[in-house]
């Protein structure tokens, strides 16, 4: 038992070392341009290439960011924003996926509803923001609702399309094994739909952030969008940039999270880059 363990460990170590080296190389490749960009950001205001009043040095932005982290201010805004987007996005997932599967499964429902859904999808959610605020005020409900609204359409439409485009041969193959309609749905239609469904989910993820920030800029008392507009009004320019950076990082994390979830769920798909 012991020896087996030690052998295992040594293999792991070797692996780790390999990953460590190539990992470093990769990290370097991925971060070099980013570092150069931040350097430029630092230098440009210093040498007077841009007006430092409007475009503070990168270090000053970082300092402002760190001050806000320390005071807990940033976390308050951040958690307000993330709570709203998670609620809106999560509700959209809970509503749009089952609904999309259902509509996709019944061709009549699909044909009847598709024009309406297309219309809704092509209505810019931000155009409806005043309507939402009119009805729901400027508290959490209106913001969560508009994110929910914006996220629903891409998920719904892609889920419907996914179900409709499952290879009929696979359905035939499953039916030839005499499985029930429920099992057919759950074991064939659902997994076959995952990749197309995820296209919609990722679209929804990026629009969730966009809509969230816009909604917070227009009417909110906290949140990252509010932080940005508030800092701008009060001419706290480094704080404003710190808020923008935080949003970028948030968007990055959400996209990365969705991407890795997608990778896990559609491991079986051929890598198109191969």
């Amino acid at each position: 038992m012991e020896t087996v363990k030690s052998v295992d460990l040594s293999i792991n170590n070797k692996k780790l070392k390999n990953i460590g080296f190539s990992g470093l190389q990769k990290l370097f490749k991925q971060s070099i341009v980013l570092i150069a960009l931040f350097l430029l950001w630092e230098i440009a205001p210093r040498i007077g290439l841009v007006d430092e009043a409007f475009f503070p040095r990168f270090l000053n932005v970082l300092i402002a960011w760190w001050e806000m982290v320390k005071s807990g201010e940033l976390f308050a805004h951040f958690s307000a924003s993330i709570t709203r987007s998670i609620f809106g996005f999560g509700l959209a997932l809970l509503i749009a996926i089952p609904l999309g599967l259902l509509i996709g499964w019944y061709p009549l429902a699909r044909d009847l509803l598709n024009p309406v859904l297309e219309l809704f999808r092509n209505t810019a959610p931000l155009a409806l923001l005043p309507v939402f605020m009119l009805f729901l005020g400027i508290d959490e409900t209106s913001k969560i609702s508009i994110i929910l609204f914006a996220c629903t359409w891409p998920i719904l439409l892609n889920t419907i399309a996914a179900v409709g485009s499952v290879d009929p041969l696979l359905i035939k193959s499953a039916r030839s094994m005499n499985i029930s309609s429920f099992k057919l749905f759950y074991k064939v239609i659902l997994p076959a739909s995952v990749p197309t469904m995820f296209t919609g989910i990722r679209m929804a993820g990026s629009s969730a952030i966009l809509i969230l920030i816009a909604a917070e800029m227009v009417g909110a008392k906290e949140g990252l969008g509010y932080l940005i507009t508030y800092s701008q009004y009060n001419f706290m320019i480094p704080e404003m940039y710190a808020g923008i950076l935080t949003i970028s990082v948030l968007g990055l994390f959400i996209n990365y999270g969705l991407l890795s979830l997608e990778k896990r769920l559609s491991r079986w798909k051929q890598d198109p880059t191969l």
Binding site: L169, K172, A174, S176, P191, A192, W268
Partner: peptide
């Protein structure tokens, strides 16, 4: 009855 379809019809996620 077991059917072997011309285009294999394997489930790609399995």
């Amino acid at each position: 009855r077991g059917i072997v379809f011309q285009q294999y019809a394997l489930f790609p996620w399995k």
